[in-house]
Amino acid sequence: MTDSWTLALARDDLSRTELVRHPVPALADGEALLRVDRVGMTANNVTYAVLGDAYRYWDFFPAATAGLDERWGLGPLWGFSEVVDSRVDGVPVGQRLYGYLPPAGHLIVRPGRVDERGFRDASPHRAQLPSPYNAYAATTGDPSYDADREDLLILFRPLFVTSAMLADRLQDNDFYGAATLVLSSASSKTAYAAAFELRGKGPRLIGLTSPGNVAFTRELGCYDDVLPYDGIGELDPATPTAYLDLSANPATRAALRAHLSDRLVHDVAVGLTHQERATEATAVFFAPDQIRKRTLDWGRPELDRRLAESWRRFAAVAEQWVDITVSHGPDGLREAWLGMLAGTTPPRVGHVIAC
């Protein structure tokens, strides 16, 4: 095993990529080498790149490890990896892990807090980064793992955690007084997973999406109603409404504010699919913040148990909503990235890349 690869993005032009071939680095004591096996590509990955500087997503996997300068960035991915070499007790060769991975063939980690559930990467450059992104879950100790649904986990799990924590934050705050919740990018996995979690909890759920995605989004059955973006005028202007912004489209926010005025009681930016910063929202939702709160409230084992139960309920339905497409290697990863960046990936398609 002498060769590896890294697919980097130009930080000033995310459509420009650079494929670098390089040797697999040697291990030091206390390190383990992961082979990146299978990853997903969703709109979430666009968010990571667009917010790479503001939220330090570029810092997880420094481009310098591939011999590139700061003009390049490695966009994080979620998926499965396998330990192929280890100098750490409790991290055996062959262990399969789910976690945050670079767009590359391999990753060196420095496992800390090793137990039957996996470990955290204690590499110095990740010490000040949000801890949920540093966890690597061993499939043998993961309550959410199902070997028959690996690809579904790859595509939905990070999104579902965001969705579940968003739903929890809303419930934890009595929906900020809203009787209606409006979700933009309603055909996206993050949006409809959140709607799935919120369904029947009290507020009416309205999805906003592009005209071409209205039929698909209605068929999901997660929303009480689905409107195209130009249908905002159909919303009841007298009802207190919260806006869950998953598109960061300024025109949508402006239309909602003009139509609802002071009945827009909460406006939170959740994700980006239009490659713009959501600077006008009254709040920004960051899932690790709610994870930290619930870890203090409930303890991590109880949080994991609740998330696993919610995931199993969602997965049983979501597998009917996605057509998984598998591509291969860095070329497949590049094509999946460019399609997602351009917004040309149909909502039913789920991109998985076998690295």
Results as ranks from 00 to 15, higher is better:
328 H>K: 12
256 L>D: 07
228 P>N: 00
327 S>F: 03
249 N>H: 12
282 T>R: 11
321 W>V: 06
240 P>G: 12
262 D>F: 06
332 G>R: 00
256 L>A: 10
314 F>I: 04
226 V>E: 01
294 R>G: 10
252 T>R: 07
251 A>I: 04
332 G>L: 07
301 P>S: 06
256 L>R: 07
313 R>N: 05
283 A>H: 13
197 E>F: 00
246 L>E: 02
234 E>F: 06
245 D>C: 13
250 P>N: 10
232 I>V: 15
297 D>I: 02
198 L>Y: 08
308 A>D: 01
292 R>T: 14
235 L>F: 09
304 D>Y: 07
319 E>Y: 01
307 L>N: 09
307 L>D: 02
326 V>D: 02
309 E>H: 10
311 W>R: 08
336 A>Q: 06
291 I>Q: 13
200 G>I: 04
232 I>S: 01
206 I>P: 07
222 C>M: 12
247 S>N: 10
228 P>D: 06
212 G>E: 01
221 G>L: 03
260 L>G: 04
285 F>I: 11
305 R>E: 10
284 V>D: 00
281 A>K: 05
318 A>W: 01
285 F>N: 10
261 S>N: 08
305 R>N: 03
237 P>Q: 10
232 I>M: 09
306 R>F: 01
247 S>D: 03
234 E>N: 03
250 P>A: 11
202 G>T: 08
290 Q>C: 06
199 R>P: 09
247 S>Q: 03
203 P>G: 10
235 L>K: 02
205 L>W: 07
262 D>Q: 12
220 L>K: 05
206 I>W: 08
234 E>A: 15
254 A>D: 15
239 T>C: 13
216 F>S: 09
234 E>T: 02
256 L>S: 10
318 A>E: 01
328 H>A: 11
248 A>Y: 05
320 Q>N: 15
281 A>F: 05
245 D>P: 15
317 V>L: 11
246 L>Y: 13
335 E>H: 13
270 V>P: 13
263 R>T: 13
213 N>A: 14
241 T>R: 11
315 A>F: 04
229 Y>D: 07
243 Y>Q: 09
224 D>L: 00
213 N>V: 01
300 R>L: 15
198 L>T: 05
210 S>M: 02
220 L>W: 06
299 G>T: 12
329 G>A: 08
281 A>H: 14
332 G>A: 05
239 T>R: 12
194 A>Q: 07
247 S>T: 09
269 A>S: 15
291 I>M: 14
288 P>A: 08
217 T>S: 11
235 L>V: 05
218 R>A: 11
277 R>S: 06
314 F>L: 14
275 Q>T: 03
240 P>H: 13
264 L>K: 07
315 A>I: 00
261 S>G: 14
312 R>L: 01
204 R>F: 06
316 A>F: 00
267 D>F: 08
240 P>R: 11
